[in-house]
């Protein structure tokens, strides 16, 4: 049949044309992920910070990030013992440029007990730092 022949000819001649709608969709997805997502360094261990209605966002990146899991403490991606935190904080503070705005962020799992956080706070207090914040999230992220 003439129509069928013409269709087959068209298909063989320009195979790339069928890909254009797909590329449109893929580009749309690419733009969405580029604009809406934030590229972040992944944490040394997976933590689910507590959910809170608190709306405050961090204005700057933290100078020191302490990730507290159920039985491990990472200070700037280094696995440290509780007693070593003070020294690590003091060293980081010494080498920091903007000492006035130096702040520590604690990213602790919601299931971590307050008792296990107390020695970490005691170490921060011993190092003389006062600006400390705890990371929370607005809603429970997908596991």
């Amino acid at each position: 049949m003439n129509i069928g022949k013409k269709f087959i000819e068209q298909r063989d001649a320009s195979g790339d044309d069928n890909m254009i709608p797909m590329i449109n969709v893929v580009f749309l997805m690419l733009v969405f992920f580029m604009v809406a997502g934030q590229i972040q360094k992944s944490d040394p261990i997976k933590v689910q910070p507590p959910v809170s209605i608190n709306e405050k966002r961090a204005q700057t990146d933290p100078n020191v990030l302490i990730v507290v899991g159920v039985d491990a403490v990472y200070v700037n991606d280094r696995l440290l013992k509780i007693e070593e935190i003070q020294t690590a904080l003091e060293q980081t503070f010494e080498h920091s440029v903007d000492k006035e705005n130096f702040w520590v962020q604690i990213k602790a799992d919601g299931s971590v007990t307050i008792d296990s956080l107390k020695p970490i706070f005691a170490e921060i207090r011993k190092s003389g730092l006062t600006k400390v914040s705890i990371a929370t999230q607005l809603s429970r992220a997908a596991q």
Binding site: F27, L30, M34, Q38, Q40
Partner: peptide, 24 residues
Amino acid sequence: VFILLLFFMLTSSFVPWRIVDTPL
């Protein structure tokens, strides 16, 4: 484009991070 898409899909984070100040 697919490689770029995969990269952004895997590295993007949509967690709405907030902070609670606990000044010492």
